[in-house]
């Protein structure tokens, strides 16, 4: 009887020990909840854009402004970065630190090119007089696409910080959870972009 209760205590102990990764699982779930609230933010911006996209106030409309070729390139860059982010997670699960950092670097590089193209597009549009205050359509456009771009930029900074942390601390339960979380974030941004690409650009050009 005594030995069995001792076993129980030991079992309890080892459960406690195992509750550490559980904590990381909880944190991953917490991040998932954040992503769900992000869905709602982007939902309101999409709704605003859909409602206002014809209110050009005599200014340039979607068909006048968008150049599909550049946006198609951006889309494939972001899709590829989503894949390389997945390869980073695979490297993580195999415990290959160098490959993990390498794939994260490729992902961040592709993300940086995406942001560069977007800034270039915005600068071009502003140069043509299509500023945010020109019309309700443009306000909604810059808010929606800009918020997505801001998310990608935050993801880039975060990814670089994580690469530094990985090279210093290596793969621990904590850094592992962080890589998993940022990959969720990155795939999520890819999904949001697909809908931006579809609703704003593909449906915009006549």
């Amino acid at each position: 009887m005594k030995s069995s209760s001792l076993k129980n205590v030991q079992k309890h102990h080892s459960d406690r020990h195992h509750s550490h990764p559980d904590m990381e699982e909880m944190r991953t779930f917490g991040f998932w909840i954040y992503l769900m609230t992000d869905i709602m933010i982007f939902g309101t911006f999409f709704a605003t854009y859909i409602v206002l996209h014809n209110n050009t106030n005599g200014g340039p409309g979607p068909a006048d402004l968008f150049e599909l070729s550049g946006v198609i390139v951006s889309t494939f860059i972001l899709l590829t970065s989503s894949y390389t982010c997945g390869l980073a997670v695979l490297a993580l699960n195999k415990g290959k630190k160098q490959a993990l950092i390498g794939w994260l670097a490729v992902t961040a590089l592709l993300g940086a090119v995406f942001i560069g193209l977007e800034i270039n597009e915005f600068a071009h549009m502003v140069h043509e007089g299509a500023t945010m205050s020109r019309s309700a359509f443009l306000s909604a456009f810059y808010t929606l696409v800009g918020t997505h771009g801001l998310h990608v930029t935050v993801g880039l900074v975060w990814m670089i910080a994580l690469m530094v942390q990985l090279s210093v601390k290596g793969i621990t339960p904590v850094t592992k959870r962080k890589v998993n979380i940022i990959s969720l974030f990155w795939h999520f941004l890819d999904v949001v972009w697909i809908f931006v690409f579809t609703v704003v650009y593909l449906m915009g050009v006549k």
Partner: peptide, 14 residues
């Protein structure tokens, strides 16, 4: 839950 709210916001606004 997130998608239900999304659809309500977008479809409702439209």
């Amino acid at each position: 839950l997130g998608l239900v709210i999304l659809v309500v916001i977008v479809a409702g606004s439209m």
